[in-house]
């Protein structure tokens, strides 16, 4: 039997080959067959999850609730020091010096990365901004978010912090971070679906010791991860509760 593995579509394109190498490493370490299928977007991913076609997923925190509470997935590991954080940025020459100086009707460049977009929206709230009072330009990646600011198409942009920090020097020098999130507990995690339940113990073992295996170390480097930390169910339940407080709207 071959298990289906996928990675949340918000992964950095720099690590595409890294995930395929990880899949090969995992099959050898576990002695099980995994087929890695990358999804083009979140819609495609959610359809695959809905149809119970996924057995192992590197999941965005936004999807954790559905995976754990509706689909019976079990959290395995998270990347060490890998909390997801967001940055709100403007052009370096913008008059805006604080989020509170932003105004209704502004154009905001963002991506379909759901947890980063959510964190960005939370940081825009103090300016009285919501989806109803802004125009969102959805970009395919964070370089295009930056370009939307530089071209003057949008007044502000929402970035994954790592993506913002990895923008090229010339681009970054023309942008200015207004605020960075420091939430610390929202993170991606690798999760196993119901058909993999018998392998959960083995998966946790091989993943948590991956960094001390010389080959495993190289594979981790290819993902930009220094090691995996085990995640227990309550930690994930806590993160799901926290995400629900951030998505909650009584209106």
């Amino acid at each position: 039997m071959s298990y289906k593995f996928t990675v949340s579509p918000d992964f950095s394109p720099d690590y595409l080959s890294g995930w395929f190498i990880f899949n090969t490493w995992l099959q050898r370490a576990l002695g099980r067959s995994f087929h890695l299928e990358m999804m083009d977007n979140f819609q495609q991913l959610h359809q695959a999850i809905d149809e119970d076609r996924i057995d192992l997923i590197y999941a965005n925190p936004y999807d954790a609730s559905m995976l754990v509470r509706d689909k019976g997935f079990v959290p395995l590991v998270k990347p060490r020091g890998g909390a997801d954080e967001a940055v709100i940025a403007v052009r370096a020459d913008s008059d805006v010096d604080a989020v509170e100086s932003l105004f209704p009707g502004i154009k905001v460049a963002s991506t379909d990365d759901p947890d980063v977009h959510l964190m960005g929206m939370i940081m825009l709230e103090p300016a009285g901004l919501s989806h109803d009072s802004m125009e969102i330009k959805q970009c395919d990646n964070y370089v295009l978010v930056a370009k939307a600011l530089l071209k003057g198409e949008c007044e502000t942009g929402i970035f994954l912090d790592k993506a913002f920090d990895e923008l090229s020097r010339p681009i970054q020098s023309q942008l200015r971070a207004l605020v960075r999130s420091e939430i610390q507990v929202i993170h991606h995690s690798l999760m196993a679906g119901p058909r993999l339940q018998a392998e959960v113990g083995n998966l946790r073992r091989v993943l948590s010791t991956m960094e001390i295996d010389p080959k495993g170390q190289g594979v981790l480097e290819g993902l930009g991860v220094s090691g995996w930390d085990l995640v227990d169910e309550e930690e994930t339940e806590f993160m799901i509760d926290l995400m629900e407080t951030l998505t909650y709207s009584p209106d």
Binding site: I122, E125, P126, G128, E237, D241, L242, T245, L246, Y248
Partner: peptide
Amino acid sequence: TVIPNIRKGRIVGYTSVRRKPDRRR
């Protein structure tokens, strides 16, 4: 925002998450 922590159908505690408010509110 306060959310009940429901585990196995039972409330076992509460999580409270506070964020920066809109000054006008």
